[in-house]
């Protein structure tokens, strides 16, 4: 009896120790995650001289004066955050809409109809999922250059019509949620196939669309590789290409301005994340399990 209570209490003590360790490590990781962003925020309000004194101080003698001055420094050179925002917004919004809509359409074509090359097409989609962007890059650039379409944002948007990964995900979702009976009854009511897709299937897929749209948006917004190669006109640069300018020699000693520039690019993402984080994290989980 007493043996048992000793055992029980030692188990309980171990539980408490484990819990303490879990919290401590989790908090350390939270600090690690937040530290770079806190530094970025604090230093955006500092003058170059203050940054050179110490990066770690969280306050500045004249925060708003410095902020205004850093802002001026940024805008006096090639980094124009609003131009970048606008271009990124255009590219990310258009490519997300195309990506999600046509992926649904393609997935529906595979799922709802029986056609001769369906299985071959489906197999092809699985196979091309692993084609890396790099291998298309040189050929794509050459073709685009020949046609004189360098610096056209549409060259970053249109390729997202064919997104095999998203088609794959959408098809899995359809497999689980589309009942052909609904489609049949709509047909009996005289609805055309295209109308059925737009008015019945698309609303049915809303949860999957939301998840995939968020990731398509974030992916397109953050993409650097293709835009860096295709966009040379400074009025066409997307935000990540703009950000890459902060690394160059032009801002070399303007530390406060570099931090502010980075801060400006992160701010909208953090605001959006604050509102959507729950859905985003759930969406990742969904995508992982399904794939």
């Amino acid at each position: 009896m007493s043996d048992n209570t000793i055992k029980a209490s030692s188990i309980k003590r171990n539980d408490i120790i484990l819990k303490v360790v879990i919290y401590i490590v989790s908090i350390i990781f939270s600090i690690m995650t937040l530290f770079p962003f806190v530094m970025m925020f604090a230093n955006a309000f500092k003058s170059t001289y203050e940054v050179q004194q110490s990066t770690l101080t969280l306050w500045s003698a004249h925060p708003f004066q410095n902020l205004a001055k850093n802002w001026q420094v940024i805008n006096s050179k090639d980094f124009h955050p609003f131009v970048g925002f606008l271009n990124s917004f255009i590219v990310a919004t258009c490519s997300t809409v195309l990506n999600v809509y046509f992926s649904c359409l393609t997935a529906y074509a595979i799922q709802a109809y029986e056609w001769k090359f369906r299985d071959a097409f489906n197999g092809m989609i699985m196979a091309i999922m692993m084609i890396p962007g790099t291998v298309t890059m040189i050929g794509f650039y050459q073709a685009v250059y020949k046609l004189g379409l360098v610096n056209k944002l549409s060259m970053l948007i249109l390729p997202s019509i064919a997104a095999p990964m998203v088609v794959f995900f959408m098809r899995q979702y359809l497999q689980a949620s589309l009942s052909m009976e609904i489609v049949q009854s709509a047909r009996i009511d005289g609805a055309g196939e295209f109308r059925i897709f737009n008015q019945i299937v698309i609303p049915l897929m809303k949860p999957a669309i939301a998840t995939q749209a968020i990731f398509a948006y974030v992916g397109s917004w953050n993409n650097l590789f293709m835009p860096l190669i295709l966009l040379t006109d400074k009025n066409k640069k997307t935000l990540p290409v703009m950000i890459s300018l902060l690394n160059g020699d032009i801002y070399r000693t303007e530390y406060g301005a570099i931090y502010l520039g980075l801060f400006v690019t992160v701010l909208p993402l953090i605001v959006v994340y604050a509102f959507l984080s729950k859905y985003i994290v759930e969406g990742v989980a969904l995508g992982g399990v399904k794939s």
Partner: peptide, 9 residues
Amino acid sequence: IITAATLAI
């Protein structure tokens, strides 16, 4: 979700 370019710099 933060731009990799931003994190690198």
